[in-house]
Design a protein around this nucleic acid. Structure first.
Lengths: 205, 205
DNA sequence: GTCTATAAGAAGATAGAC
DNA sequence: GTCTATCTTCTTATAGAC
């Protein structure tokens, strides 16, 4: 990893731990192993580092979205997969997705940074809302809606059903982000949540 | 309100909007209508203001908890009330509670401040978790558990049922805190959520 | 591209008059 | 208790040598 990118990486770590204002340019430089003034050869100022992180995140999520449409992971395909899944496989999938978002180093740090900075900047609040509320809800609404139209889930309100599926997952992520020691307990609740959801909204046996 | 308390009030407003580090002692003083040095006659330093806010919050919530036990608002009483409520009344209660937490000036500002500061200080993360996750979940688990044992709700896992009740409410609060324009939409979802919850976990008609 | 030296300015806090 | 003046420290950022 070149210096320019290492600066981004270390800055993201620090910002996610202490917040933008509590991180000094010299802190970032020290982690990278250079002196603060050298850092200005790579970025115009401190703010530019922050913005480059946001920019990088945007690219990552755009790529991810593209990959979802191009490869076999579109909602149509996912809905098909879901239909033919046993409860056991469904639990495994839910757990893997949850753990990915929880542990993936980039996601984890970025989520924490956004949590801290979201109220300082309206744009960041939008980014936060989109990433962790609206995008998951609309994707899952589409997904669960297709499964429901196939008759594997039963509801007269797909949006509320999706809220019932996702809100507990969001809450468990909130718990684990703040107290990693509760991960095991949360994973158990995740399992039970999915099992219960499956029972409530019904799948054919 | 005396100056000492007005400092706390204005500081809380500013901290909730910009975060501790981005608020200057002179900003707080200006809002109060005095100069920064005068403020040091009331509080030893900036940190002491922050800690006084936390302290005040602790007292408020302790008082609230006491009131819950002494007056008619214990979980036992609440459970009794719930049993005899029509769905319409249940919706009204849910909405009133939601709006209280959302709009109550002290709650709103304190919740935002904690959201911003929680990762900078392990103690604050604990406070956040207790106030917005653990305390509501354990109170509601007790409440819904009693209603269930009375036969008005049906489940073999009260904790998951409570998660299904509270997590969507927590998520809707998250939405409204970040974008007040979505309040109306969120209230509609709240209604539909409670109605659906009522249908799923069943009440006698 | 990295360094040392340093400028420029911000922000917390104190001294002492009123 | 509030003010003005001021100190001190911290932090961002630049200048210029290597």
């Amino acid at each position: 990893m070149d210096t320019k990118h290492r600066i981004l990486d270390e800055a993201l770590t620090l910002f996610s731990e202490k917040g933008y204002a509590n991180v000094y340019v010299s802190d970032i430089a020290e982690r990278v192993g250079i002196k603060a003034p050298s850092l200005y050869k790579h970025y115009k100022n401190k703010r530019a580092i922050f913005e480059a992180i946001i920019e990088e995140m945007n690219e990552r999520f755009l790529k991810q979205a593209e990959a979802l449409n191009i490869s076999g992971f579109s909602a149509e395909a996912d809905a098909g997969i879901y239909k033919n899944m046993s409860e056991k496989e469904l639990l495994k999938l839910g757990r893997e997705l949850f753990l990915f978002y929880l542990h993936d180093n980039y996601n984890r740090r970025f989520r924490k940074m956004l949590t801290i900075e979201q109220f300082a900047d309206k744009e960041l609040a939008k980014v936060y809302m989109n990433l962790y509320v609206d995008a998951p809800l609309s994707y899952q609404t589409m997904l669960l809606g297709m499964v429901a139209s196939g008759g594997m889930l039963h509801t007269d309100n797909v949006e509320i059903m999706t809220l019932h599926f996702y809100a507990p997952i969001y809450m468990l992520l909130t718990i684990c982000d703040r107290d990693p020691e509760r991960e095991e307990e949360s994973l158990k609740m995740l399992d039970e949540h999915i099992r219960q959801f499956d029972r409530i909204y019904g799948r054919k046996e």
